[in-house]
């Protein structure tokens, strides 16, 4: 569906995006995590064809997006700071988008009006930042495009609205397999939202994972043996990390839970506990593994 391949983007001498490749299948919610300045907005704006890329390809259904009206009609981009024409009411903006997007769904627009409960005759620029964001999401969903790209959409929204927005997006994913690309600086915010998560750091994607699969394939094990850790065991499990605390060992192990349990139990530990890792912990260990300090990247 949406494919980014070997993408580069430079501002003067500054390489904002370096060799980024992503593939987002249809109906998937794809999260892009990165700290401020990591290149999220540049990447999203280059993907949507607002910025011209230096190298690489960005395609929707195998067709270049940049300067391609047909492809762009299938994408709606909600910027971090959504733009509205001066003096335009929500209704005015809706009428504008109606002329741009042939897929505009008036019924949906009306239905969402009832959900967001925002006066469509109010000038958007006079609204608060959070309200403007909601208007952008309202309009964006009403365009009924195949792809929705959102830059920090949940930032500045309260918990109730945030849940509402998530629900609305999920509905579109179920009903018509909407494809979503969403950015955030907060991993926790995206962890229960996305199917895939990629970490962007200094313009590069340094990690990309399927969220649910990830959580059930890495475990933290606390274990102790009467006669110390059997050497053989260390070889039989896929260890990512092992730390000794007195007689107890804390292991980070990759693999199937049942298999790990069986293997370790067969050495008769005097203490044994296995828990899933939080997504945050997984990223931390994985990034340590490839030589990055997690703390330097998030938050």
């Amino acid at each position: 569906m949406l494919r980014v391949n070997g993408l580069y983007k430079k501002y003067d001498d500054f390489e904002a995006i370096k060799n980024v490749s992503l593939y987002i299948p249809r109906g998937v919610v794809y999260g892009l995590i990165g700290s401020n300045g990591a290149g999220k907005t540049t990447l999203l704006k280059t993907v949507t064809g607002i910025f011209e890329k230096d190298r690489g390809t960005v395609t929707l259904n195998e067709k270049e997006i940049y300067e391609n009206v047909e492809a762009k009609k299938k994408i709606f981009f909600i910027a971090d700071n959504p733009y509205f024409y001066p003096g335009y009411t929500v209704k005015d903006m809706a009428n504008f988008y109606k002329t741009v997007y042939e897929t505009w769904d008036e019924v949906k627009y009306e239905r969402l009006r009832g959900i967001f409960k925002i006066d469509e005759n109010k000038k958007v620029r006079n609204m608060s930042k959070g309200m403007q964001k909601q208007v952008a999401i309202w309009l964006g969903l009403s365009t009924n495009t195949d792809v929705l790209i959102l830059d920090e959409p949940l930032d500045g929204l309260d918990a109730v609205i945030r849940q509402r927005v998530k629900k609305l997006i999920f509905h579109e994913v179920i009903d018509r397999q909407l494809t979503v690309l969403i950015s955030s600086h907060n991993l926790r915010e995206l962890e229960d939202f996305c199917d895939y998560v990629a970490i962007l750091h200094s313009g590069e994607v340094i990690l990309e994972k399927e969220v649910e699969k990830l959580k059930s394939s890495i475990f933290k094990v606390e274990v102790a043996f009467n006669d110390g850790m059997p050497e053989e065991l260390m070889k039989r499990i896929k260890l990512i990390k092992a730390v000794q605390k007195g007689r107890m060992w804390v292991l980070v192990v990759e693999g199937e839970r049942i298999e790990i349990e069986k293997t370790i139990q067969s050495y008769n530990p005097i203490l044994f506990d296995i828990v899933s890792l939080t997504l945050e912990e997984i990223f931390m260990y994985e990034m340590e593994g490839i030589g990055y300090e997690y703390e330097n990247i998030n938050y």
Partner: peptide, 18 residues
Amino acid sequence: SVRALSNDLTINPNTIQK
């Protein structure tokens, strides 16, 4: 249904489907 559950729990429908 996946839709109802996704709506009730606010969780990703693809996860429910899985």
